[in-house]
């Protein structure tokens, strides 16, 4: 309790004097202080409320250790990442070429866009019964659901990117006799690439949200299942919160990895200008 109050006061003090810090120090000091302050508040709230079920920060740390020692954690992490990776790659592999073609060809756009727009608002969660019916409980259903949740952002994002290609670039290509397949390789794909990468990033974020929900409802492994299991097996909310934090950390890591795509010379123009 005392430690928490001190931490809260200390972080408040640091935030108060933030103006005097250099930009570089602020960059790490401010978020660390905010995090420390929130953890301190969490701890104080636990003590004040006298909750028996809700874990304190320290309980959560112990729960983390228990999870890591239990060995089952890595199996669940691997299961979730496996489903997300394959579902996402499948969606990108089909969604990007489809989006390029639908975005470029007006007739294909007219034919397919209404169907794509009609299927898009259906939450992937609503597909869970059908996924289980088709693939049973397990990885197949998980991959299918992640495919669905990534496919629409990627396809729609790619379509929009292609339809946004500037008339001047199209005419330049035309002027120098670039057509058909070469047009896709030299103009359509590179022009759309920055926005495609953005849509991949959005899709991966959605995929990571959906997999947890899907595993809570219809699977017997994975981080979502772990949360459900921890609650059902004797209200282990400490394990629930520890798993939630882990889900957040992996989400940050995934986003960090996919953002590596944005630094290449061929796409950097799409994020700095406009």
């Amino acid at each position: 309790m005392i430690v928490s109050i001190l931490a809260l006061v200390a972080s408040a003090a640091v935030l108060f004097y933030a103006k005097r810090m250099s930009a570089h120090v602020q960059e790490w000091a401010l978020p660390v202080c905010v995090a420390a302050g929130l953890i301190a508040l969490w701890d104080i709230a636990c003590i004040v409320s006298g909750s028996e079920v809700f874990p304190s920060p320290l309980d959560t740390v112990y729960a983390f250790r228990e999870l890591i020692e239990s060995q089952r954690l890595w199996g669940d992490v691997a299961a979730s990442l496996f489903r997300v990776t394959w579902g996402f790659l499948l969606a990108a592999g089909i969604g990007i070429p489809l989006g390029l073609v639908v975005g470029w060809s007006t007739r294909t756009f007219r034919a397919l866009n209404p169907i794509i727009q009609g299927l898009r608002p259906i939450s992937p969660i609503a597909w869970i019964p059908i996924a289980i019916l088709w693939f049973g409980i397990g990885d197949g259903a998980g991959v299918f659901l992640i495919f669905l949740s990534s496919f629409f952002p990627i396809t729609v994002g790619t379509m929009a990117a292609v339809r946004n290609i500037s008339l001047v670039h199209q005419r330049s290509a035309l002027n120098f006799g670039v057509r058909r397949f070469e047009l896709f390789r030299r103009v359509v794909l590179p022009a759309a690439l920055p926005q495609i990468i953005t849509s991949l990033r959005i899709a991966l974020g959605v995929a990571w949200l959906v997999i947890v929900a899907a595993e809570m409802v219809g699977m017997d492994t994975g981080l979502g299942y772990l949360i459900n299991d921890a609650r059902n097996a004797g209200s282990r909310y400490d394990l629930v919160v520890a798993t939630m934090i882990l889900i957040g950390l992996i989400g940050i890591l995934l986003d960090f990895l996919i953002r590596r795509l944005e630094v290449f010379d061929e796409v950097r123009w799409g994020y700095t200008q406009r």
Binding site: S166, V168, H169, R171, A191, E266, Q273
Partner: peptide, 15 residues
Amino acid sequence: SKRVFVFQEYGIFPW
């Protein structure tokens, strides 16, 4: 390409 157009808004490819 025997007759080339030079655009005002940059027609060169930023990628």
